[in-house]
Amino acid sequence: MNSFKVQYTIDGEDFSVAGEASRKLKKVLQSLGVDPQIIRKATVAMYEGEINMVIHADGGVIDAEITPEKIHLFLRDKGPGIPDIALAMTEGFSTASDNVRELGFGAGMGLPNMEKYTDYMNITTEIGVGTTIEMIVNTSLS
């Protein structure tokens, strides 16, 4: 299989549709015959990132590249940026609103979960400009 690329635009206006892009990626990975446990790792990591983009950054763009060796995800937003990445990576730390918490998120587990489920994660952020998160999940496609 050659590499397969897909791009998703994340709507930052409507929390109820947050996660749709991750569902779509899951279907793509299933159609490509990726191992279900690898699919779970990649789509949970992307889902947490997608939720973050809606909660904190008014949406953004996610690019996914799937090769026989890996699933490569780039999440780009034009949100406020992350002032302290180490603090943001701390389990339980969150700047989400009470409204978001009532919806079952904003518990400070998003970034830690993303790191947990991926083989590589790198955060590039600039205050007032935006954040890019690159994640890789290694795979083995049939």
């Binding site: 109820s16 947050a18 996660g19 991750s22 569902r23 779970r40 789509t43 079952g104």
Partner: peptide, 15 residues
């Protein structure tokens, strides 16, 4: 006890 679409999406992601 949470009722919103994210419950289903979360369950789907976790198979």
């Amino acid at each position: 006890g949470l009722v919103n679409p994210q419950v289903v999406r979360t369950a789907e992601m976790m198979d």
